[in-house]
Design a protein around this nucleic acid. Sequence first.
DNA 1: TTATAATGATGAATATAAATGATATTTTTT
DNA 2: AAAAAATATCATTTATATTCATCATTATAA
Lengths: 297, 297
Amino acid sequence: MSVLQRNHLMIIQEVAREGSLTAAGARLNLTQPALSHAVRKIEMQLGVKIWRREGRSLILTQAGQWLLSLANRLLPQFSLAEERLEQFANGERGTLRIGMECHPCYQWLLNVVSPYLERWPKVDVDVRQKFQFGGIGAILSNEIDILVTPDPLYKPGLNFTPVFDYELVLVVGSGHRLYGVDRVTPEQLADETLITYPVPSERLDIYTQFLQPAGIAPRQQKQIETTDIMLVMVAHGRGVAALPRWLVDEYAPRFDLHSVRLGETGIAKQIFLGRRETDADVQYLTDFIGFAADPKD
Amino acid sequence: MSVLQRNHLMIIQEVAREGSLTAAGARLNLTQPALSHAVRKIEMQLGVKIWRREGRSLILTQAGQWLLSLANRLLPQFSLAEERLEQFANGERGTLRIGMECHPCYQWLLNVVSPYLERWPKVDVDVRQKFQFGGIGAILSNEIDILVTPDPLYKPGLNFTPVFDYELVLVVGSGHRLYGVDRVTPEQLADETLITYPVPSERLDIYTQFLQPAGIAPRQQKQIETTDIMLVMVAHGRGVAALPRWLVDEYAPRFDLHSVRLGETGIAKQIFLGRRETDADVQYLTDFIGFAADPKD
DNA sequence: TTATAATGATGAATATAAATGATATTTTTT
DNA sequence: AAAAAATATCATTTATATTCATCATTATAA
């Protein structure tokens, strides 16, 4: 079927470069008879004269010259491919597909990804946020490689690592009646407008861990995609929101915001990174978790 | 050394397309065990996981996907190369390098080359006119494939075919004193200005076969490269020239020229095409000589 | 020119790699 | 649970490459 092989191109190229079978053989780690046979067989199989023998030197025919230019074009691509494969093998190259099940973590993620990209110049990072069968489904079906989530679901084949703790607090703007207050009860939110990310309320801790146990619902709920806008809204008194304390602290100097503890003890949260156990030996993946657990900046 | 082979790419591509080893095997004319082995060996040699086994189907890993895109890029080039080689083998493709040792023949050559290019769409024609070691040297050293010459030099390894006969005549313009004359003697040219191509006089038949035998030299000699200009000069009475009769006939309607026989019997010439005997089986080359000997237009 | 060193060609022997058939194992379907 | 379909594995055969030893040819130097 297919007769033209990579070796053939290598032989054509090397013989042309060195001008002799013996020299070309040395470079290809072959003996001279091996090349002599190979050369004959190539011509036989391709059905074309590739070399003209003048004295004891081989000179390319037209077909041979054409093949040489082909070789010069294709062979570097093979070499490059092998380099790349080695990088894949060493876990130096790949795409790290991160799935996010934690909206405010986006901010935090950026701080981890930046130094990571420096460290792994050949690794690309891709962040995804929507999964048909949930984050766990996405990681099990190989849709993503790492899952950032506050809800580890211990399943065989999966592996979760806690990367940071934070407290979920209520954010209020400067003109708000709760501004300056230390802690808040569920009842105090009954008359508020609550701003949240656009996800079902059973995935929002402010509901599951604070309001619902007390049987309270806020007067109104607004859904906003991005954290920045959400905080601008809060700063201008259009509502209150539940966010990580570190996030509020980060924005406070710009927007004049205030954090209020939710209940007596506050709501403590933890973020986990999940990955497949089969990826245990993928360097760039393991290393990402290292970066996440212990940020370098 | 080099592990990534064309087969490997073919297997990766075919397995990805068919989704099963059995089906891919059928398309590659291999049995299923052969592929099963091959697949394992490829991964082993490359040192990278290329497929993930889910149930009994093989799914490409990142490295595998990368290899697949490589395969899609490189494999067509191999196929194309093999097509081209077949054309080389069948003598359908190549460059026909024609060497010219006969200035006025350029006109004639164009009439042969046009239909020839139609017939052999994949053959390129290249015409050369200057050779360091003469036309014979050029053809022997593979610098050209066909030599157009009035002087066949029978050498072992070379093969000459006469392609057309013509008479070398003297051309004069309408106001010239020889206009309308039937034949001319060498003595009658002693007072003329002779226009020739810029080559040594020993390569001009008007000298070697007409003037020198009679010990005559023209009053003046002018050298001009192109036939058109030469004839314009002749038409305007700036001199006379020795050219093939058919060439003069071709220009006569435009320039009002007259041909005069050189001597009693005229100078008969013949043009030959020379080629190497080793090229006897190169179809497109043999065919060119056919076209030249028996023009189709 | 002749001797000499270097190179290519050739054939038999060997080593390596690839493909096969039979069969076991796994996964999917019913 | 049984049947069907696919893959994996093994021993064997077949095909392909490589080498060694040797000869023939060609270039180089004496």
